[in-house]
């Protein structure tokens, strides 16, 4: 157990190190969420409701976390394939899932920056008064959301070990998840048949938990559901990664050619 935790920690730290070393990626990661936030806050400001504006600021912040993970998670294994390291990861005796989880956790960690940056941008550029009801609980809800988003990213990422074209999944799911998880539009406004889909996605509960924490409500139920679903995604992702690695070994898709 200690060895597994250590592997996850070392993997997370090195992935974080690797992903934070490109000046180009760094600037993009800093600027991109601010554009989201600006667009969303300009739209919501027209409504004149302060609580709606605060809710939108929180939604935009989680949206930044999801955007930081969605496309990067699904392209990460294709990137490993290009580097020639994917085969080395599979050739190692460690369970493959344990090598992918730190990658998406590192992306989620970078996403947390976008959460903080969006809220600060809202406060200073738009004058949105975000007075957190429970700052510590807010922080906990944010971390739970980042974990939930990361493990959803993990599920997206593992498919790329078998299918070289699966990198497109992240792009395909990025916008639908914005909508379905209620980042900007309340879930209640969606058609009834969409809601069950929202309920099985961890970010739905994550953003609800952050909103509750921001407005001084009780986020514990939402945090628990977000984490429970995250564990479920981790279990499904681990099982799926084992099956997909075997399939990749059968169909010879681990290498670039």
């Amino acid at each position: 157990m200690t060895a597994v935790l250590r592997l996850l920690l070392v993997g997370w730290w090195l992935q974080l190190k690797m992903r934070s070393r490109s000046a180009f990626d760094g600037i993009l990661a800093i600027v991109y969420p601010l554009f989201f936030a600006t667009s969303v806050l300009l739209m919501y400001r027209q409504g004149g409701s302060e609580s709606a504006l605060i809710g939108a600021a929180v939604g935009a912040s989680v949206l930044g976390v999801w955007s930081a993970v969605a496309t990067t998670a699904s392209t990460s294994l294709q990137q490993e394939r290009r580097l020639g390291t994917l085969e080395l990861l599979v050739a190692a005796p460690t369970r493959f899932a344990l090598l992918v989880v730190p990658m998406t956790l590192a992306m989620g960690t970078i996403g947390l920056y976008s959460l903080v940056a969006t809220l600060l941008w809202g406060r200073f550029a738009f004058g949105i008064p975000i007075s957190l009801g429970h700052p510590l609980v807010f922080a906990l809800a944010s971390v739970a959301t980042a974990v939930g988003v990361s493990l959803m990213g993990f599920l997206l990422a593992v498919s790329a070990v078998r299918y070289r074209g699966a990198w497109a999944l992240g792009t395909a799911f990025e916008l639908p998840v914005w909508l379905v998880c209620g980042f900007l539009v309340p879930i209640a406004a969606l058609p009834g048949w969409v809601r069950p889909i929202s309920w099985v996605l961890p970010p739905t509960w994550g953003v609800a938990a952050i909103r509750h924490a921001a407005f001084g409500g009780s986020p514990w139920g939402d945090i628990a559901l977000c984490l429970l679903l995250s564990v479920l995604y981790a279990v499904v992702g681990t099982w799926l990664s084992g099956r997909l690695v075997t399939s990749a070994r059968t169909h010879a898709t681990l290498a670039l050619t």
Binding site: L14, K17, M18, R21, S22, L83, G84, T85, E87, L88
Partner: peptide
Amino acid sequence: FGGDRGLYERL
């Protein structure tokens, strides 16, 4: 294996 792939360049 040979060639210059198979390493993490940024590390």
